[in-house]
Simulated scan of single mutants.
Amino acid sequence: MTTPTLIEPTLIERERTYDRFAPHLVPQPYWRFPHALWFWAMGLGAGTFMVRHAFSIADTGTVLGLSLLDVLGLVLVGIGGLILILDLGRPERVLKALKRPDRSWIARGAIADFVFLIVGAVYLLPGWFEALPWTDEPFLEANLTAQVMIAVAFAAAALIIAYPGMVMYEGLSIRLWHSALVPAQFIAHALTSSMGLTLLVLAVGGRLEQVQTELAIGFLVGLVATLGLTHMYVVERAHEHSPAARAGLHRLLRGRMAGHFWVSVLVGYGVPVILTLIALAAPSTGAVLLATGGALSVLGSLQFRYAQLCAGVKVTPLG
């Protein structure tokens, strides 16, 4: 009697017909670009709202009489929410997604989306109705009623940024995602790209001068932190001994997603570091450089999210 050999799972793309019922490593087929766009839009929108109030940016420009940065934040989160609704497919599934917030990060995130959109929209109304008893100024300059609204929206925005990373972390079958550094990455990417978007908007509108240095320093710290977390994540996943984690990391660094990953890291975050350092050393050219770096970080964040999602690999007994 022969002893059965343990079959090491291999990537399905290299399998032959006679290996059909051996364990396979299969790229996850469900979370693709629409989900990357969903996570990116929500994080960018929520982060932009947080950046505006954290840096107390009063002169943001307006659209239809409303603060441009706040409107951008609401629109981006709304786009992310719309993608979620379309992904769920039917209205009853949307309501089901709101159940059990004590157990489900999707439910917590969906509730946070609604709270942010409703409270944020109400906070902006003085731009249209000046007689309302609150203002649409940034937190430090607003009256008490507006500060309460901003605090509630700020807390909801923080949850919106973090919850997709927690959803991915809890996906135990995708070992590439099961790292505590994944939620940290979501936070770093969202806040850094939000500062990049803020720099871009203010520079294009000619309103960057008053906050240029503070925002540039914050942007630089975010870029360095994001690059550092990415390095730590790659090293940490490289020490994960499961075949699915190794295959996912190979797919991310050297396989089909490698181009997206390296462009997002080097161009989306590495180049803006250099541009920001030059802008801090030569403030007279800072607006153009910071706007360019900000745009690159916004695009790089989306590309990174897409690469990380599509690099996910799981083990399955069927090919």
Rank of each mutant, 00 (worst) to 15 (best):
D19M: 13
H24D: 10
H24F: 05
V26I: 09
W31K: 04
W38E: 13
W38R: 09
A41M: 14
L44W: 06
G47W: 09
R52A: 06
T62F: 11
G65Q: 12
G73M: 09
L74R: 02
V75R: 00
V75K: 01
I85E: 13
E92I: 11
L95S: 13
K96D: 13
R100F: 04
W105T: 05
G109L: 00
A110M: 12
I111A: 05
I111Y: 04
A112M: 11
F116R: 03
V122Q: 05
F129S: 04
F129L: 12
A131D: 10
T135Q: 07
E137D: 11
E141F: 08
L144T: 15
T145N: 06
V148I: 10
A151I: 09
A158H: 06
I160T: 05
S173W: 12
W177K: 02
V182I: 09
F186M: 08
I187Y: 14
I187Q: 14
A188I: 06
A188V: 07
S193Q: 13
V201G: 04
A203Q: 12
Q210A: 13
V211L: 02
V211A: 00
T213P: 00
T213F: 00
L215V: 03
V221L: 07
L227K: 04
L227Q: 03
L227M: 03
V234R: 02
V235D: 11
E236Y: 00
A238Q: 14
H241G: 03
P243A: 03
A244H: 13
H250D: 15
R251S: 15
R256G: 15
M257R: 10
M257L: 11
A258K: 01
G259R: 07
G270S: 14
T276C: 10
T276A: 09
A279M: 06
A281D: 06
A282G: 02
A282I: 04
P283F: 00
P283A: 01
L289V: 05
S297W: 10
L302Q: 09
L302K: 08
R305W: 08
R305A: 06
G312M: 04
